[in-house]
Amino acid sequence: MNGESKPKKNEQIALLVTCLSDLFRPQIAHATVELIEKLGYRVDVPAQTCCGQPAYNAGEEDKTRMLAENMIRIFEPYRYVVGSSGSCVATIKEHYPRLFREGTSEYEQCMKFAQKTYELSTFLVDFIQVNLEKKPLFDKQPVRITYHDSCSGLRELGIRSQPRKLLRDRLGIDISEISNSEVCCGFGGLFCVKYPEISTRMVDNKIEGIEHVEADVLLGGDLGCLMNIAGRLRRVGSKTRVYHYAELLTETVPGPAIGYQE
């Protein structure tokens, strides 16, 4: 069966790029590739588009189904698919199956896709059960790192301990937890532009938590949320920088944070 037993050495793994990373933060996809390749697997990136999450959440089921069929076809040749966004992976694993009628061949195809698709941290920790090697952090400077648990990953995929374990193994640090780490940051896809005032209040609440622990760095596993938080942090002049957790797990020192350039 697809994606159920651990991949063998050299086995090909398809990368789910996710559109936001594709456009705004290729570093996340590069980091994901590096982490998977380092385990001895080959990574392939089939030409792909969007999983349809924005359409799905806007209530556009027909368009989502069309895009889902597209994605299922694109990833059909692969036994494993890994992506670095909890909400995109949750769309595929949790919501795609609701778009097709049980018993149809489309549904079967969809279930196969859902089963073989993994979010990066669950792939590494729960599935491959990897213990990452320790590396020095940011030229050995002490850094306070906090974490935002993005809602889809947290509640639909159960991602909470996995990225924390990876960060502990790799950087030897524990997260300075914020009290509202599991509260929505106010992104919500279209929500943040449909109700900007409410969304801004929500991200401000999040930032209150971040400031309370005086974090230098905020990490998370979903670029939409991270762009929202980073955008607000920069606007209010905060010193906190924002990265995807995968960016801190690679060999190289991470470059400029989200929303910053060299």
């Binding site: 790029v17 990373s21 594709d22 456009l23 705004f24 933060r25 290729p26 570093q27 996809a29 590069h30 990136v45 030409a47 792909q48 943040c192 532009v193 449909k194 900007p196 801004t200 991200v203 762009m227 929202n228 980073a230 955008g231 607000r232 920069r234 606007r235 989200i258 929303g259 350039q261």
Partner: peptide, 19 residues
């Protein structure tokens, strides 16, 4: 609606798929 309260990141010079 975004940029009234939040900065918006400049995308990378090429998409990941392009790179």
């Amino acid at each position: 609606a975004w940029t009234s309260t939040r900065d918006f990141p400049v995308p990378s010079t090429a998409t990941f798929q392009g790179q």
